[in-house]
Design a protein around this nucleic acid. Structure first.
Lengths: 136, 136
DNA sequence: CTGGCAGCTGGAGCGCGGTCCAGGTCAACC
DNA sequence: GGTTGACCTGGACCGCGCTCCAGCTGCCAG
Protein backbone atom coordinates (compact mmCIF):
# COMPACT_ATOMS: atom_id res chain seq x y z
CA UNK A 1 0.00 0.00 0.00
CA UNK A 2 2.67 2.41 -0.93
CA UNK A 3 0.85 4.11 -3.71
CA UNK A 4 1.52 7.71 -4.33
CA UNK A 5 -1.75 9.05 -3.08
CA UNK A 6 -2.32 10.94 -6.30
CA UNK A 7 -2.87 8.04 -8.69
CA UNK A 8 -6.54 7.80 -7.96
CA UNK A 9 -9.20 8.50 -10.53
CA UNK A 10 -12.60 10.03 -10.06
CA UNK A 11 -15.65 8.16 -11.31
CA UNK A 12 -15.82 10.37 -14.37
CA UNK A 13 -12.22 9.62 -15.22
CA UNK A 14 -12.73 5.93 -14.71
CA UNK A 15 -15.72 6.03 -17.03
CA UNK A 16 -13.66 7.70 -19.67
CA UNK A 17 -10.71 5.41 -19.38
CA UNK A 18 -12.54 2.15 -18.95
CA UNK A 19 -15.27 2.73 -21.46
CA UNK A 20 -17.84 1.37 -19.02
CA UNK A 21 -20.70 3.56 -17.92
CA UNK A 22 -20.78 4.76 -14.35
CA UNK A 23 -23.85 2.65 -13.76
CA UNK A 24 -22.01 -0.37 -15.03
CA UNK A 25 -19.03 0.31 -12.79
CA UNK A 26 -21.35 0.54 -9.80
CA UNK A 27 -23.15 -2.59 -10.93
CA UNK A 28 -19.88 -4.50 -11.27
CA UNK A 29 -18.83 -3.43 -7.83
CA UNK A 30 -22.18 -4.44 -6.39
CA UNK A 31 -22.11 -7.93 -7.76
CA UNK A 32 -18.52 -8.43 -6.76
CA UNK A 33 -16.72 -8.16 -10.07
CA UNK A 34 -14.81 -5.20 -8.81
CA UNK A 35 -13.72 -5.56 -5.23
CA UNK A 36 -13.08 -2.87 -2.71
CA UNK A 37 -12.92 0.33 -4.68
CA UNK A 38 -11.46 3.02 -2.44
CA UNK A 39 -13.53 5.98 -1.34
CA UNK A 40 -12.85 9.64 -0.80
CA UNK A 41 -13.96 11.08 2.51
CA UNK A 42 -17.18 12.14 0.85
CA UNK A 43 -18.01 8.56 -0.07
CA UNK A 44 -17.15 9.11 -3.71
CA UNK A 45 -15.30 6.30 -5.45
CA UNK A 46 -11.63 6.58 -6.25
CA UNK A 47 -10.37 4.12 -8.83
CA UNK A 48 -6.76 3.01 -8.76
CA UNK A 49 -4.62 2.10 -11.73
CA UNK A 50 -4.98 -1.44 -10.54
CA UNK A 51 -8.75 -1.14 -10.75
CA UNK A 52 -8.42 0.21 -14.25
CA UNK A 53 -6.22 -2.66 -15.31
CA UNK A 54 -8.74 -5.10 -13.89
CA UNK A 55 -11.52 -3.34 -15.74
CA UNK A 56 -9.48 -3.80 -18.90
CA UNK A 57 -9.42 -7.50 -18.21
CA UNK A 58 -13.16 -7.54 -17.59
CA UNK A 59 -13.80 -5.73 -20.84
CA UNK A 60 -11.71 -8.25 -22.64
CA UNK A 61 -13.55 -11.20 -21.13
CA UNK A 62 -16.92 -9.60 -21.62
CA UNK A 63 -16.26 -8.67 -25.22
CA UNK A 64 -15.21 -12.19 -25.99
CA UNK A 65 -18.49 -13.49 -24.68
CA UNK A 66 -17.75 -14.64 -21.18
CA UNK A 67 -20.93 -14.43 -19.11
CA UNK A 68 -21.00 -12.49 -15.85
CA UNK A 69 -21.01 -15.71 -13.86
CA UNK A 70 -17.75 -16.72 -15.47
CA UNK A 71 -16.16 -13.37 -14.83
CA UNK A 72 -17.30 -13.62 -11.25
CA UNK A 73 -15.61 -16.93 -10.86
CA UNK A 74 -12.45 -15.46 -12.31
CA UNK A 75 -12.72 -12.45 -10.00
CA UNK A 76 -13.01 -14.70 -6.99
CA UNK A 77 -9.94 -16.61 -8.03
CA UNK A 78 -8.07 -13.38 -8.55
CA UNK A 79 -8.98 -12.32 -5.04
CA UNK A 80 -7.57 -15.60 -3.83
CA UNK A 81 -4.05 -14.42 -4.57
CA UNK A 82 -1.08 -16.17 -6.09
CA UNK A 83 -2.27 -19.59 -5.07
CA UNK A 84 -4.99 -19.49 -7.68
CA UNK A 85 -2.83 -18.62 -10.64
CA UNK A 86 -2.92 -22.15 -11.98
CA UNK A 87 -6.71 -22.18 -11.86
CA UNK A 88 -6.92 -18.79 -13.48
CA UNK A 89 -4.64 -20.04 -16.19
CA UNK A 90 -6.96 -22.94 -16.82
CA UNK A 91 -9.97 -20.66 -16.98
CA UNK A 92 -8.26 -18.43 -19.51
CA UNK A 93 -7.04 -21.33 -21.58
CA UNK A 94 -10.53 -22.73 -21.80
CA UNK A 95 -11.92 -19.37 -22.61
CA UNK A 96 -9.30 -18.85 -25.28
CA UNK A 97 -10.39 -22.11 -26.87
CA UNK A 98 -13.97 -20.87 -26.88
CA UNK A 99 -12.93 -17.65 -28.49
CA UNK A 100 -11.18 -19.68 -31.13
CA UNK A 101 -14.42 -21.53 -31.78
CA UNK A 102 -16.33 -18.31 -31.98
CA UNK A 103 -13.88 -17.02 -34.53
CA UNK A 104 -14.17 -20.15 -36.60
CA UNK A 105 -17.94 -20.11 -36.46
CA UNK A 106 -18.09 -16.47 -37.36
CA UNK A 107 -15.81 -17.01 -40.32
CA UNK A 108 -17.92 -19.90 -41.56
CA UNK A 109 -21.08 -17.87 -41.32
CA UNK A 110 -19.37 -14.97 -43.00
CA UNK A 111 -18.62 -17.21 -45.94
CA UNK A 112 -22.30 -17.98 -46.28
CA UNK A 113 -23.14 -14.32 -46.21
CA UNK A 114 -20.56 -13.64 -48.86
CA UNK A 115 -21.90 -16.43 -50.99
CA UNK A 116 -25.31 -14.84 -50.76
CA UNK A 117 -23.85 -11.48 -51.64
CA UNK A 118 -22.25 -13.05 -54.69
CA UNK A 119 -25.56 -14.56 -55.64
CA UNK A 120 -27.34 -11.22 -55.39
CA UNK A 121 -24.63 -9.51 -57.40
CA UNK A 122 -24.92 -12.10 -60.13
CA UNK A 123 -28.64 -11.60 -60.19
CA UNK A 124 -28.35 -7.85 -60.52
CA UNK A 125 -25.69 -8.22 -63.15
CA UNK A 126 -27.82 -10.52 -65.23
CA UNK A 127 -30.80 -8.28 -64.85
CA UNK A 128 -28.83 -5.20 -65.85
CA UNK A 129 -27.35 -6.88 -68.90
CA UNK A 130 -30.61 -8.36 -70.02
CA UNK A 131 -33.42 -6.13 -68.95
CA UNK A 132 -36.14 -8.67 -69.30
CA UNK A 133 -38.97 -6.29 -68.86
CA UNK A 134 -39.68 -2.98 -67.38
CA UNK A 135 -37.38 -0.66 -65.56
CA UNK A 136 -38.02 0.74 -62.19
CA UNK B 1 -40.97 -43.93 -46.57
CA UNK B 2 -40.03 -41.27 -48.96
CA UNK B 3 -43.54 -40.16 -49.45
CA UNK B 4 -43.09 -36.57 -50.38
CA UNK B 5 -44.67 -35.54 -53.53
CA UNK B 6 -44.39 -32.23 -51.72
CA UNK B 7 -41.30 -32.37 -49.50
CA UNK B 8 -43.06 -30.92 -46.49
CA UNK B 9 -41.59 -31.35 -43.04
CA UNK B 10 -43.34 -31.78 -39.74
CA UNK B 11 -42.48 -29.42 -36.90
CA UNK B 12 -40.29 -32.05 -35.30
CA UNK B 13 -38.36 -32.51 -38.51
CA UNK B 14 -37.98 -28.78 -38.97
CA UNK B 15 -36.63 -28.51 -35.45
CA UNK B 16 -34.08 -31.15 -36.15
CA UNK B 17 -32.97 -29.76 -39.45
CA UNK B 18 -32.97 -26.08 -38.56
CA UNK B 19 -31.53 -26.38 -35.11
CA UNK B 20 -34.10 -23.92 -33.80
CA UNK B 21 -36.46 -25.00 -31.07
CA UNK B 22 -40.12 -25.41 -31.90
CA UNK B 23 -40.91 -22.46 -29.68
CA UNK B 24 -38.42 -20.38 -31.59
CA UNK B 25 -39.90 -21.40 -34.93
CA UNK B 26 -43.35 -20.39 -33.70
CA UNK B 27 -41.94 -17.18 -32.32
CA UNK B 28 -40.24 -16.33 -35.61
CA UNK B 29 -43.44 -16.96 -37.47
CA UNK B 30 -45.42 -14.82 -35.05
CA UNK B 31 -43.17 -11.83 -35.36
CA UNK B 32 -43.00 -12.12 -39.11
CA UNK B 33 -39.53 -13.52 -39.64
CA UNK B 34 -41.00 -16.57 -41.21
CA UNK B 35 -43.92 -15.83 -43.44
CA UNK B 36 -46.80 -18.06 -44.31
CA UNK B 37 -45.80 -21.50 -43.17
CA UNK B 38 -48.21 -24.02 -44.67
CA UNK B 39 -50.56 -26.02 -42.52
CA UNK B 40 -51.88 -29.55 -42.57
CA UNK B 41 -55.64 -29.93 -42.30
CA UNK B 42 -55.21 -30.39 -38.58
CA UNK B 43 -53.63 -26.99 -38.23
CA UNK B 44 -50.17 -28.42 -37.76
CA UNK B 45 -47.33 -26.64 -39.49
CA UNK B 46 -45.67 -28.03 -42.56
CA UNK B 47 -42.30 -26.56 -43.41
CA UNK B 48 -41.12 -26.51 -46.99
CA UNK B 49 -37.55 -26.79 -48.21
CA UNK B 50 -37.80 -23.13 -48.98
CA UNK B 51 -38.69 -22.43 -45.36
CA UNK B 52 -35.72 -24.47 -44.28
CA UNK B 53 -33.39 -22.56 -46.54
CA UNK B 54 -34.71 -19.31 -45.17
CA UNK B 55 -34.20 -20.57 -41.65
CA UNK B 56 -30.62 -21.27 -42.60
CA UNK B 57 -30.24 -17.68 -43.64
CA UNK B 58 -31.78 -16.52 -40.39
CA UNK B 59 -29.44 -18.67 -38.38
CA UNK B 60 -26.54 -17.21 -40.25
CA UNK B 61 -27.63 -13.65 -39.62
CA UNK B 62 -28.50 -14.34 -36.02
CA UNK B 63 -25.25 -16.12 -35.29
CA UNK B 64 -23.30 -13.23 -36.71
CA UNK B 65 -25.04 -10.86 -34.35
CA UNK B 66 -27.80 -9.29 -36.40
CA UNK B 67 -30.61 -8.24 -34.06
CA UNK B 68 -34.17 -9.41 -34.67
CA UNK B 69 -35.15 -5.99 -35.93
CA UNK B 70 -32.52 -6.21 -38.64
CA UNK B 71 -33.59 -9.66 -39.67
CA UNK B 72 -37.14 -8.44 -39.80
CA UNK B 73 -36.18 -5.70 -42.17
CA UNK B 74 -34.38 -8.21 -44.32
CA UNK B 75 -37.39 -10.52 -44.23
CA UNK B 76 -39.65 -7.74 -45.37
CA UNK B 77 -37.36 -6.95 -48.25
CA UNK B 78 -37.25 -10.60 -49.18
CA UNK B 79 -41.02 -10.68 -49.26
CA UNK B 80 -40.89 -7.72 -51.62
CA UNK B 81 -39.55 -9.92 -54.41
CA UNK B 82 -36.88 -9.33 -57.02
CA UNK B 83 -37.29 -5.59 -56.88
CA UNK B 84 -35.61 -5.47 -53.51
CA UNK B 85 -32.52 -7.43 -54.39
CA UNK B 86 -30.37 -4.33 -54.55
CA UNK B 87 -31.47 -3.28 -51.08
CA UNK B 88 -30.95 -6.74 -49.72
CA UNK B 89 -27.48 -6.70 -51.21
CA UNK B 90 -26.74 -3.46 -49.40
CA UNK B 91 -27.99 -4.85 -46.12
CA UNK B 92 -25.81 -7.90 -46.45
CA UNK B 93 -22.78 -5.90 -47.48
CA UNK B 94 -23.12 -3.70 -44.45
CA UNK B 95 -23.65 -6.66 -42.25
CA UNK B 96 -20.62 -8.36 -43.72
CA UNK B 97 -18.55 -5.32 -42.84
CA UNK B 98 -19.82 -5.53 -39.28
CA UNK B 99 -18.92 -9.17 -39.10
CA UNK B 100 -15.46 -8.23 -40.28
CA UNK B 101 -15.22 -5.74 -37.43
CA UNK B 102 -16.40 -8.30 -34.95
CA UNK B 103 -13.73 -10.68 -36.16
CA UNK B 104 -11.04 -8.05 -35.86
CA UNK B 105 -12.18 -7.05 -32.39
CA UNK B 106 -12.38 -10.63 -31.25
CA UNK B 107 -8.88 -11.31 -32.53
CA UNK B 108 -7.51 -8.27 -30.74
CA UNK B 109 -9.09 -9.29 -27.48
CA UNK B 110 -7.88 -12.81 -27.96
CA UNK B 111 -4.35 -11.47 -28.15
CA UNK B 112 -4.80 -9.83 -24.78
CA UNK B 113 -6.07 -13.05 -23.31
CA UNK B 114 -3.11 -14.89 -24.71
CA UNK B 115 -0.74 -12.31 -23.34
CA UNK B 116 -2.29 -12.86 -19.94
CA UNK B 117 -1.98 -16.59 -20.35
CA UNK B 118 1.68 -16.11 -21.16
CA UNK B 119 2.08 -14.00 -18.08
CA UNK B 120 0.49 -16.62 -15.87
CA UNK B 121 2.63 -19.33 -17.38
CA UNK B 122 5.76 -17.33 -16.76
CA UNK B 123 4.70 -16.82 -13.19
CA UNK B 124 4.11 -20.51 -12.62
CA UNK B 125 7.37 -21.33 -14.27
CA UNK B 126 9.30 -18.93 -12.10
CA UNK B 127 7.56 -20.17 -9.01
CA UNK B 128 8.24 -23.76 -9.84
CA UNK B 129 11.92 -23.08 -10.48
CA UNK B 130 12.45 -20.86 -7.51
CA UNK B 131 9.93 -21.85 -4.89
CA UNK B 132 11.33 -19.97 -1.91
CA UNK B 133 10.71 -16.44 -3.00
CA UNK B 134 7.84 -14.31 -1.95
CA UNK B 135 6.56 -11.68 -4.25
CA UNK B 136 3.72 -9.41 -4.88
C1' DC C 1 -63.76 -46.76 -26.76
C1' DT C 2 -59.69 -45.08 -24.55
C1' DG C 3 -55.03 -43.35 -24.15
C1' DG C 4 -51.25 -41.21 -25.54
C1' DC C 5 -48.87 -38.17 -28.22
C1' DA C 6 -47.80 -34.40 -31.38
C1' DG C 7 -49.08 -30.09 -32.17
C1' DC C 8 -52.09 -25.82 -31.71
C1' DT C 9 -53.00 -20.91 -29.46
C1' DG C 10 -52.54 -16.72 -26.68
C1' DG C 11 -50.27 -14.97 -23.20
C1' DA C 12 -47.30 -14.90 -19.12
C1' DG C 13 -42.65 -15.40 -17.49
C1' DC C 14 -37.64 -15.61 -17.53
C1' DG C 15 -32.47 -14.70 -17.55
C1' DC C 16 -29.18 -11.59 -18.77
C1' DG C 17 -26.90 -7.37 -18.47
C1' DG C 18 -27.36 -3.50 -17.57
C1' DT C 19 -29.98 1.38 -16.98
C1' DC C 20 -32.75 4.71 -14.65
C1' DC C 21 -34.67 7.14 -10.87
C1' DA C 22 -35.80 9.48 -6.44
C1' DG C 23 -33.96 11.42 -2.77
C1' DG C 24 -29.86 12.73 -0.44
C1' DT C 25 -24.83 14.45 0.70
C1' DC C 26 -20.94 17.08 0.15
C1' DA C 27 -17.71 20.95 -1.92
C1' DA C 28 -17.10 24.74 -4.40
C1' DC C 29 -18.22 28.94 -6.38
C1' DC C 30 -21.02 33.33 -6.78
C1' DG D 1 -26.35 31.97 2.16
C1' DG D 2 -27.76 29.78 -2.12
C1' DT D 3 -27.02 27.28 -6.13
C1' DT D 4 -24.70 24.11 -8.94
C1' DG D 5 -22.68 19.85 -10.03
C1' DA D 6 -20.58 15.52 -9.14
C1' DC D 7 -21.60 11.61 -6.84
C1' DC D 8 -23.98 8.55 -3.40
C1' DT D 9 -27.67 4.59 -2.32
C1' DG D 10 -31.30 1.09 -2.82
C1' DG D 11 -34.37 -0.49 -5.66
C1' DA D 12 -37.40 -0.49 -9.70
C1' DC D 13 -37.38 -1.04 -14.44
C1' DC D 14 -36.05 -2.22 -19.30
C1' DG D 15 -35.10 -4.57 -23.96
C1' DC D 16 -33.92 -8.60 -25.99
C1' DG D 17 -34.76 -13.13 -27.35
C1' DC D 18 -36.67 -16.53 -26.34
C1' DT D 19 -39.23 -20.25 -23.21
C1' DC D 20 -42.91 -22.09 -20.70
C1' DC D 21 -47.66 -22.97 -19.64
C1' DA D 22 -52.67 -24.06 -19.61
C1' DG D 23 -56.10 -25.74 -22.07
C1' DC D 24 -57.45 -27.66 -26.33
C1' DT D 25 -57.72 -30.60 -30.91
C1' DG D 26 -57.02 -34.41 -33.81
C1' DC D 27 -54.96 -38.85 -35.14
C1' DC D 28 -53.50 -43.38 -34.37
C1' DA D 29 -52.64 -47.78 -31.55
C1' DG D 30 -54.46 -51.18 -28.62
Amino acid sequence: MSASGSELLTPAEAVERSGFSLDTLRYYERIGLLGSVQRARTGHRRFSEHDLAWLGMLRCLRDTGMPIAGMLRFAELARGGDGTVAQRLTVLEEHDAQVEEQLAHLRRQQEHIRAKIGHYRAFLHAEGAEPAGQDR
